[in-house]
Amino acid sequence: MRRATALWHIDPDDPRAPTVEVWEQLTPEQRREIVDSLPSEFPLDEAAPPEGDPHWHPVTRARTTLDRWFQRAGRRVYVSGNLAVYYPDERVFSPDVIAVTDVETHERDRWVVTDEGKGVDFALAVIVDGRRRKDLVRNVEWFARLGIPEYFVFDRKRGSLRGFRLATSASRTYEPVIPQRGHYASRVLGLDLLVDGGKIRFYAGEAAIPDTDELIDKLGSLVDAAEQRAQDLERRLDEEIRAREEEIRAREEETRAREEAELRLAEALAEIERLRRERGGA
């Protein structure tokens, strides 16, 4: 059997997945060999320059928020980002955040469309000081041609959000997503996107989905409240124990006093009786 790499040459400077025609001619073993040969990193000319925490934080919040939401909802939605994506015979690219619906959600180091049997359904780009033309012009045309149903671009520095959607599965030109009261509806996710306080937020109906930082803060508040309740309960228990101990001591003192009084009374009665006997005898 011929080696798969001989049937499809992978250029290290421009790695690409096989064309659909070549892919259909490959055996399962040859397909796996080629997929494993595709680099999980992507060319430097395709990578955006480092933008530090202002870029990393919104990307991470979006990924973790979506991943946690779909897990809790029981939906099979694969959420990732900065992942090498390979469409047949296309340049590799890596959106900041991607979502693919109705697939297995296990970890991956690349997304090869022909191998997975499905392309990306949702892509999100976060701009800080990067190449706006790449995200807002080239990618809008490219992703539409690839058939990616939805593409959103969050410009953090300008506090703006833009959305693009294919009108039908056969369309290859995006239409803008028109916001309603600031909400950009994602049909793929079943959620709304909104810029709030300089951050991109996801909404389920009218309810904001909390991000990780908010959940940590909420959990911290719950822990603090639980600790305060525990301290209050411990203090009340201590007070009740002290009150019960004082009550027991008071009862014990009362019992001792009564017993002493009864003893003295008995002694007095005995003395009286003795004196009576002595008087009678005299």
Rank of each mutant, 00 (worst) to 15 (best):
P18H: 03
K118Y: 01
Y78D: 08
E41S: 14
E278K: 14
L265V: 05
F143T: 07
S221M: 11
G190H: 04
T114P: 05
E234D: 14
D121W: 01
F42H: 14
R2K: 15
E260I: 01
W111C: 00
H106N: 12
A250W: 10
G197Q: 09
K134M: 09
L233M: 13
N82E: 14
L83Y: 04
E150Q: 08
D238P: 02
V128Y: 06
R108G: 02
E239Q: 14
V140T: 07
V177W: 02
E259C: 04
L146I: 07
S186C: 01
A243F: 04
L193A: 08
G163Y: 00
S186Y: 00
P49R: 11
A268L: 13
Q231K: 14
V103R: 10
E51F: 00
L265Q: 15
E214V: 08
S37R: 13
E46R: 15
A48V: 09
P95G: 06
S171N: 05
N82P: 02
S37L: 13
L161P: 05
K134I: 09
L233C: 09
G281L: 15
V103Y: 03
G197H: 08
R32T: 10
P210T: 09
F164N: 12
R264E: 13
V140G: 01
T212L: 11
Q30S: 07
G205R: 07
A230F: 10
I178H: 10
D115F: 07
D121V: 06
G81T: 05
G74M: 04
G190W: 01
V77L: 00
S37Q: 14
L275S: 12
R276I: 09
E175R: 13
A266D: 15
T168V: 05
S80P: 01
R172M: 03
R76K: 12
A62D: 02
T5C: 06
A17M: 06
L219Y: 13
R133P: 00
T114F: 05
R133A: 07
V128I: 11
L44G: 11
I272Y: 12
A226Q: 12
G197F: 00
V177Q: 08
G163L: 00
V120N: 06
L237H: 15
A243L: 09
A170W: 09
R274I: 03
P176F: 03
L26V: 05
R16P: 04
R132V: 07
L263F: 13
R63F: 03
V20C: 10
A185D: 11
E46S: 12
D211K: 04
E246D: 15
V112S: 04
R91F: 08
R279A: 14
E116H: 02
D155L: 02
G119F: 00
L194C: 11
L38P: 07
Y78W: 13
A17D: 09
G147K: 08
E271R: 15
E234N: 11
R156F: 00
W56V: 10
V223P: 05
D135K: 10
E240M: 11
G280H: 15
A270V: 06
L66K: 06
S37I: 03
L219G: 12
Y184R: 06
E234R: 15
D36M: 09
